[in-house]
């Protein structure tokens, strides 16, 4: 019952094709569509709250260095390699 709520996040902004997170600019708010990584990487990201459907704000695009994101009330730094594998829109 509670579980259904997560799908609402999708409907907020679903125009356009998914892009890798590395294509975003600071200040942009995007929704994670999918994570193209191995199981280990996915589980790490999920445990940090970065799941498909979650809204996040890009604070800094550090290419080629780490990214800084605001998600679920906290800030997280994320390596460039990982950012490439996160598809957002």
């Amino acid at each position: 019952m509670e579980a259904k709520k997560i799908s609402n996040a999708y409907s907020e902004n679903d125009t356009g094709h998914p892009l890798p997170l590395t294509m975003t600019v600071p200040g942009q708010s995007v929704t994670i569509v999918s994570i193209n990584g191995g199981r280990g990487m996915k589980m790490r990201l999920y445990s940090m709250g970065l799941t498909p459907g979650v809204r996040l704000r890009v604070l800094s695009n550090g290419a080629p260095g780490p990214f800084l994101l605001a998600v679920r009330d906290f800030k997280v730094a994320l390596g460039y390699g990982m950012a490439q594998k996160i598809m957002v829109r």
């Binding site: 509670e2 994570i35 996915k42 999920y46 709250g49 799941t51 498909p52």
Partner: peptide
């Protein structure tokens, strides 16, 4: 499955 389970947990 692992993605669905994580999403369901955050949904909860």
């Amino acid at each position: 499955a692992e993605t669905v389970l994580a999403e369901k947990r955050y949904g909860f």
